[in-house]
């Protein structure tokens, strides 16, 4: 019996972790060889040493990166799916058989055959790919929830970055996560308070996709007078004038009339507005 066999057996027992000893024959060999006995003791110490040592944990960023990668891959796959192929127009069969086929009006027969084939295929396909069970749906749903929670965490974390470029990346990341109330709330808070005009401009761009929501429009309207940067103020105004409701547009012109806008913005608006826009 070789030493390596004994070591292999010892590792097997240590991994099992049930405190079993080596078989008698092996143990005798260990007892008779100080060198081997020392190795075995060392292995026992090594296996037991880590039992109460806290394991280093990876950061949440690692999770976030994985889920982002997975989400991107899924999107890419979805967008790469080939469009449903248009039914090709059948050219009339100019051969003799085609002529004969048309002569004897096989159209209804062809249609029937096609229907049988389609139903048959459907039957076969359904048999080999079973419908997802409720359990699977629950698992998938749970996974989706987890992905959403992680996405939210990542977005909020990035929006809290000390560097403007980090927060800018956070705004980009939030674009696909706006359904989450917390993310939207944070974006709107930053719109009023972030020190960087670039971040605030990016937020205007991001929330513009949801302008059909009345509550959001009102919050954007409120934000106009909170802006000290003419570029951000005009970006908000331009967005609401272009895609906002009539009420929003009226309110903007009221701000203009009441001198509540930054001078440069007011001058610019006065130049570009038309009577139709004010109506």
């Amino acid at each position: 019996m070789k030493h390596e066999d004994i070591i292999a057996k010892k590792i097997e027992l240590l991994q099992a972790g049930d405190g079993q000893n080596l078989p008698e024959e092996m143990q005798q060999l260990v007892d008779s060889s100080p060198e081997l006995a020392s190795e075995i003791s060392f292995m026992e110490a090594l296996w037991q040493a880590d039992n109460h040592q806290p394991v280093e944990q990876p950061s949440q960023q690692m999770d976030a990166r994985f889920y982002q990668m997975l989400s991107q891959t899924q999107s890419e796959l979805n967008s790469a799916k080939p469009p449903l192929e248009a039914t090709t127009k059948n050219k009339p069969d100019s051969t003799l058989s085609g002529w004969l086929t048309r002569l004897f009006n096989p159209q209804p027969l062809a249609t029937m055959a096609l229907l049988v084939m389609v139903f048959g295929l459907g039957y076969v396909t359904n048999n080999t790919s079973p419908e997802p069970t409720p359990h699977v749906s629950a698992v998938v749903s749970k996974l989706e929830q987890k992905i959403e929670t992680l996405n939210t965490m990542v977005a909020l974390n990035m929006l809290n970055d000390q560097s403007a470029s980090g927060r800018l990346a956070g705004v980009s990341y939030s674009m696909s996560n706006q359904a989450n109330g917390k993310v939207t709330q944070t974006l709107l808070q930053l719109l009023n308070s972030d020190s960087s005009s670039a971040v605030r401009l990016a937020i205007v761009d991001t929330v513009s996709q949801r302008l059909n929501e009345e509550k959001l429009q009102n919050q954007l309207l409120d934000s106009i007078t909170k802006q000290d940067s003419p570029i951000v103020q005009i970006a908000l105004i331009q967005l609401l004038l272009k895609d906002g409701s009539q009420t929003s547009k009226k309110q903007i012109y009221a701000l203009l009339e009441n001198n509540q806008l930054i001078d440069e913005v007011a001058d610019y608006l006065n130049v570009i507005k038309t009577p139709a826009q004010e109506a």
């Binding site: 394991v55 944990q57 990876p58 690692m62 999770d63 994985f66 889920y67 997975l70 891959t73 899924q74 796959l77 698992v139 998938v140 996974l143 989706e144 987890k146 992905i147």
Partner: peptide, 13 residues
């Protein structure tokens, strides 16, 4: 692909 998340959670540590 969603099931990869499950495999990730089990094996990441």
């Amino acid at each position: 692909l969603g099931y990869l998340a499950n495999l990730f959670e089990k094996n990441k540590q």
